[in-house]
Simulated assay, not measured.
Amino acid sequence: MTGATIFHLLPQAPRPVAPFSHAVEAAGWVVLTGQMPTHPDAPDAPLPEGIAAQTGRVMRNLEIVLKGVGLGLEDVVQCRCYLARFDRDYAEFNSVYETFFEKGRLPARTTVGVSGLAVGALVEIDCLARRPE
Rank of each mutant, 00 (worst) to 15 (best):
L73I: 05
P107Y: 06
V77F: 08
P37L: 04
V69T: 15
T33E: 05
V76R: 06
A108P: 08
G68T: 04
G120V: 01
L62F: 10
D44L: 01
P40W: 01
V96T: 01
P40K: 00
E92S: 13
V112D: 12
T38S: 02
F86M: 10
A42R: 05
D75T: 11
A84M: 12
G120P: 08
L73A: 04
R88N: 14
G116T: 07
T55C: 12
A118F: 10
N94S: 13
L83T: 15
V112E: 08
R80L: 15
P107W: 05
S115L: 12
D89W: 02
F100W: 07
V65C: 07
V76Y: 05
A91D: 13
V114E: 10
F100I: 00
L83M: 12
R80H: 15
Q54Y: 06
N94K: 12
P37K: 00
I125W: 06
G72Q: 12
L106W: 12
R109E: 14
K103A: 14
N61I: 08
R57H: 08
S115Q: 12
S115E: 13
L71T: 04
L117M: 09
V65Q: 06
I125M: 00
A108I: 13
T38Y: 02
D75W: 13
A91C: 08
Q78D: 13
L106Q: 15
T55P: 13
D41P: 13
P48M: 05
I64H: 05
Q35K: 05
L32E: 04
H39Q: 09
L122Y: 01
V58F: 08
Y97S: 05
A91W: 11
A84N: 12
F86S: 02
G50W: 05
F86N: 05
R88K: 14
F86P: 09
C81M: 10
V58H: 07
N61H: 07
R80G: 13
C79M: 02
V65D: 01
E63D: 15
G113K: 09
C79K: 02
G56D: 07
D89V: 09
L117Y: 06
V119Q: 02
E124T: 00
L32S: 03
F100R: 09
T110H: 14
F86Y: 11
R109T: 14
Q35E: 04
Y97E: 10
L122Q: 04
G68Y: 00
L71V: 09
Y97A: 00
Q78G: 08
T55M: 09
R105V: 15
I64F: 01
M36N: 03
G56H: 01
D41H: 14
I51G: 04
A45L: 04
I125Y: 02
A45H: 03
I51C: 11
P46N: 04
V119E: 10
S115Y: 13
L122H: 03
F100P: 05
K103L: 14
V114N: 08
K67L: 14
V76I: 09
V77R: 01
Y97D: 00
F93A: 07
M36K: 00
R80E: 15
L62R: 08
L47T: 10
L117N: 01
R80V: 15
C79L: 07
